[in-house]
């Protein structure tokens, strides 16, 4: 499978940093796309308090994305200084708004539709669990900027994990209807969980041990599913490709909304 880290926009980035930039963009894209999805709830939540809570999570995720994009931009610019400065340089916004469907590296799980509240809660739980263990691992990364962002974000992520696991339990073990809806959500989302633990080339290069994460992730998911009266599915075929730029059809629509103004009015300040 072709990887997109050698994309011509960053052609001056040497290979080793190319992997690093690709990985940072992957982390940023994950947070941005899930944040964008959660933001769709704002104003439409099932009850005001939860509307506020899901918006908080969205804000946290977008904040993380910004930190990672800023760092990626810094690395890219180091290798291709633009003499005039300003325009043409990579920035958090050029990376979020001017890359295409095939350049985004978020995992497929993040881009799946909100569905109902059950589906959104399960998506958040599955992802936050992954993010929690990943960031805990990244806290000690030799790249101190990545480590710093992970450490700072871990507090937020712990809250997301607690909040979403509470909802999974509440809905799984709530009413007959909520249980049924949780089952459907598991059915919708499970095939997108495998990808989280299949290393992309940039993860391999950077020795990100995704297999190690899988054990912790599975243990946590098992515990919560057990409490929620849900069963962890087995023998599900796993979809993959998001991390290397082959997405589900949803991403194109997400980017159409996200990038609309920057595409329609190129080169403007906002």
């Amino acid at each position: 499978m072709e990887t997109t880290y050698s994309n011509n926009k960053f052609s001056k980035v040497p290979p080793q940093d190319g992997f690093r930039v690709a990985y940072i963009l992957h982390l940023a894209d994950n947070s941005l796309i899930l944040g964008q999805r959660n933001a769709e709830w704002c104003g439409h939540g099932p009850v005001l308090e939860q509307d506020i809570a899901i918006t908080n999570i969205s804000l946290d995720l977008i904040g993380q994305a910004r930190s990672f994009y800023q760092y990626a931009a810094q690395l890219i610019n180091q290798h291709s200084p633009s003499p005039g400065g300003g325009r043409g340089e990579a920035s958090e916004d050029s990376l979020a708004y001017l890359r295409t469907e095939r350049e985004f590296k978020n995992c497929l799980l993040a881009e799946q539709p909100n569905g109902d509240w059950a589906q959104t809660m399960l998506r958040q739980f599955l992802y936050s669990t992954y993010q929690y263990y990943l960031y805990r691992f990244l806290q000690t990364n030799s790249d101190t900027t990545i480590a710093g962002i992970a450490e700072k974000s871990l507090k937020e992520v712990s809250y997301h994990l607690r909040w979403s696991s509470e909802w999974v339990i509440r809905l799984g073990d709530g009413t007959e209807e909520s249980h049924k809806r949780m089952l459907r959500a598991v059915d919708e989302l499970w095939s997108y969980t495998g990808e989280l633990f299949i290393p992309a080339p940039y993860e391999k290069e950077l020795s990100i041990d995704t297999a190690f994460l899988k054990d912790d992730w599975a243990k946590k998911v098992n515990t919560v599913f057990d409490e929620a009266a849900l069963t962890v599915p087995s023998n599900v075929f796993m979809q993959e490709g998001g991390k290397t730029g082959t997405h589900t059809e949803h991403l194109g629509y997400i980017l159409s909304d996200l990038q609309y103004l920057q595409r329609a009015y190129p080169g403007c300040d906002w």
Binding site: C42, G43, T55, I62, R66, Y97, L258, L261, W270
Partner: peptide
């Protein structure tokens, strides 16, 4: 979902919240 920069998106989300 269509805010033109990440900063504006965050400001708008926080405002609506």
């Amino acid at each position: 979902t269509r805010a033109p920069s990440l900063k504006r998106k965050a400001i708008l989300l926080a405002k609506v919240q």
